[in-house]
Computed example of a mutant assay.
Amino acid sequence: MAASSETPNRASSRSAARLAAVQALYQMDMTGIDLTDVVAEFEAHRLGQEVEGDQYCTAEAKFFRDLTEGVVREQRQLDPMIDQQLAEGWRLNRVDSILRAVLRSGAFELFMREDVPARVVITEYVDIAHAFFGEDEPKVVNGILDRLARKARAAEFARSGAGNG
């Protein structure tokens, strides 16, 4: 993970919260389940719990809620910004549901959570993409989030010199 001001335990609980948020957004997209219901389900049964033999890492519940609720709240603003970064002829609604959730969550963090360094956001969501996909999709996530970060956080990139990826 990229260097940040987060302590190792806080960083890993935030990584788990990001993964859970992507999974919750995917579940909402695929099933039409309500935001309130999916957040309640994840908090009660998934965050830090064992599900189908897999032990979920303890996730920072407040951060999970902020990401999930924030993506839903800001989706009408985020989607056009993501659309502009996609290859010509592609629209976000044509992208795989998991990839769409990764991009929306990453974009939300870049534009609305300035307390998290842009490079940390990019690295985290590229890692999440690797958990679900082969090489192409993580590269797409890296490229799109890097371009969005340079728009949302131009000052961060100007201060630190060379870019990410």
Rank of each mutant, 00 (worst) to 15 (best):
S4N: 10
S5G: 14
T7M: 12
A11H: 14
S12V: 15
S12H: 13
R14E: 13
A16Q: 09
A17L: 09
R18L: 12
A21M: 12
V22W: 04
Q23R: 15
Q27K: 07
M28W: 08
M28S: 13
M30H: 10
L35F: 04
L35E: 15
T36N: 14
D37N: 14
A40Y: 09
E41I: 10
A44V: 10
R46H: 14
V51Y: 01
G53P: 13
Q55M: 14
F63V: 08
R65W: 05
L67D: 04
V71Q: 03
V72D: 00
E74F: 07
L78V: 07
D79N: 08
I82A: 04
Q85M: 14
E88Y: 10
E88D: 03
G89T: 06
W90F: 12
I98M: 11
L103R: 07
L103W: 12
E109D: 11
M112H: 15
R113K: 14
E114H: 05
V116R: 11
V116L: 14
A118C: 06
R119F: 07
E124C: 03
D127H: 11
A129N: 03
A131T: 10
A131I: 05
V140D: 02
V141C: 03
G143K: 01
I144D: 02
R147D: 06
L148H: 03
L148N: 01
A149P: 04
R150W: 01
R153N: 00
A154W: 03
A155Y: 02
E156S: 14
E156F: 05
S160M: 05
G165P: 04
